[in-house]
Amino acid sequence: MLPRWVKPLLFVLCLLPLARMVWLVLQAVPVNPVEFITRSTGTWALVGLCLSLAISPLRRITGYGALLRVRRMVGLFAFFYAALHLLTYLWLDQFFDWAAILRDVLKRPFVTLGFAAFLLLLPLAVTSTDGWIRRLRRNWGRLHRLVYPAAVLAVLHYLWLVKRDLTEPLLYAAVLAVLLGVRIYWFCRARS
């Protein structure tokens, strides 16, 4: 069983990136705060996605079933940072200039991909409650496979926007490749 203090501790841990971001911006440390907030929220959304995708493989390898009980919280925090990331773009970057935003989404592939990734995550966040899990039954698991394409789109979104140095986005691509690769490997082995 999962000790009772694990979830509250995890909740606080997941809020630390936000606390750090707010603290640094209030201290006027970043010279370009809007860019800093955009990058920081985007980074933590990606980290959250990778962590939530790491939980099932970890459970399988360690045999520690209780791990599944924190997956929802990690996933919801990934969505939380993705939502802050989108809000930063809509509000602080574009100031709700809907015509410019629409042009961006249609014309800029990396914006299109990021937006698509968010749209895929949205129903997952909405159906994350116990009630929805009951109501959707087997379909809940099917629906939540959308996290795989969402994570792929999120990494492509990052890869496509970088000016020149691909080191960091490639790092996330490698992590995601491992996380999706083990699933494919296990799936193929189970069928043969």
């Binding site: 809007v34 602080l92 100031f95 961006d104 800029r108 592939p109 990396f110 926007l161």
Partner: peptide, 16 residues
């Protein structure tokens, strides 16, 4: 090709 050059953010300013 990947982003607009129509506006800019002057460092230190919030609005573009």
């Amino acid at each position: 090709p990947r982003w607009s050059q129509a506006t800019e953010r002057r460092i230190g300013e919030l609005f573009k």
